[in-house]
Write a protein that binds this DNA or RNA. Structure first.
Lengths: 218, 218
DNA sequence: AAAAATATTTAGGCAAAACTAAAAATAGTT
DNA sequence: AACTATTTTTAGTTTTGCCTAAATATTTTT
């Protein structure tokens, strides 16, 4: 499997999470920053190799073997991110691009030993679950903070947007993974919210609340 | 710099150690397992980018910037080997191919932090010196065991051949890096030698002795 | 020094993965 | 249902890094 093929499979996997009935050519092109015609070419190749099922003009979805391939790439990406943060001391906003390269190293022995070295982590530094060697991962009952209810308390467990800009904003506001968040107020006009975190009150815009995953109960 | 370009530069660097007056097209082709015509193509490209000086039919040598590039690839390769052995518990005969992939990850920050994490090692698991960020590395007064003198004691500090087969042979004979070796006898007929190592006597063929680096004094 | 052997380069092609431009299919709108 | 807009595919190119086969240099042998 080439690096390019792995990247396509991974992107199709991520886009499938949002639109499970089929991923469009344009969506893939947009994510990978290529042209739609290039995507069509690659989809044919991936279909030939039985990693996606693809009908002209109807979008694609991963086959069983494609899904496993995708999960293995995601597994590698997230394990490397844990390594970069936990062992090398990188900040959570610095690791994505490096992991993007490391995820393509081909060695099952390597990734198995890395997993062991890291203590078999279940989540990466952004709160995303790490598939095990079989592709299984924990599934949490998480919601977006923008969908949460007034006067309830949640736990901040992940980000939807993991771009450096957003992560740096969270650092600045001292909003860290695992923190309890109490939803104090929802402003009807602009959907901004007021929360209590670290014993302080904080106002977050809808856009921010829309990118924070919280645990439903407690 | 592409992966292919890095591999060429690295191979030219290694071959230069043996033949400093110029590396031949065929030597490169042999090492990289490609055809001479492919090498010629690449040499032109590398010359255009000023990483090698190349005269038709006269072989190549690295320019100053090419030499630094090569040392940085070697640095990455050897640091990753240390990581694989020291941190992930791989054996010294298992790490070459994985490091061959890892050496192409592009991130100065990564390699700097990896170096720090490993405690700024000076040698890789095979006893080869690791260049620092400037390309400097320690130079030892080492010789081959086949060039050593009778009744002198040496220290085993490196291997010339680092193929898995040879390394496994050394493991089997309990010949480990750092061990003192006393040269007891040189057999004139086949140049095999008798040594004392780990309080035991051992006979080594010329081929073995020809691939072991030892420290000259003590 | 000429002939033979070897090494290297040139010329022409191929496959992967991207591109542009044009054609075809689908979706949306009146 | 027809027209328009959008999406997707096809067709034809480009670039990178490799290949084979043929031509040219260099080296070795006689």
């Amino acid at each position: 499997m080439t690096i390019s093929e792995e990247n396509y499979i991974k992107v199709i996997y991520h886009l499938s999470q949002v639109s499970p009935k089929g991923v469009t050519t344009n969506a893939i092109a947009g994510t990978l920053d290529t042209k739609a015609s290039s995507v069509t070419d690659m989809l044919k190749k991936l279909a030939d190799k039985n990693w996606v099922s693809y009908q002209k003009y109807q979008g694609v979805s991963l086959t069983e073997s494609g899904l496993l391939k995708a999960k293995m790439v995601v597994r590698k990406h997230r394990l490397w991110e844990v390594f970069l943060v936990e062992k090398l001391g990188f900040a959570w906003d610095e690791v994505h691009d490096i992991a993007e390269e490391l995820e393509h190293i081909q060695s099952d022995a390597l990734i198995g030993r890395l997993d062991e070295f890291l203590g078999y982590p279940s989540f990466d530094p952004h709160g995303d679950p790490i598939p095990n060697a079989k592709g299984e991962m924990v599934k949490e009952e998480r919601i977006l903070l923008s969908e949460a209810q007034r006067n309830h308390t949640y736990r901040f467990i992940g980000v939807k947007d993991s771009s450096p800009g957003f992560l740096q904003y969270l650092d600045k506001q001292k909003i860290a993974l695992g923190a309890p968040i109490e939803l104090l107020e929802i402003e009807p006009f602009d959907h901004s919210i007021c929360i209590r975190i670290n014993e302080q009150e904080l106002v977050l815009s809808q856009k921010i609340a829309d990118n924070l995953y919280v645990l439903k109960h407690v």
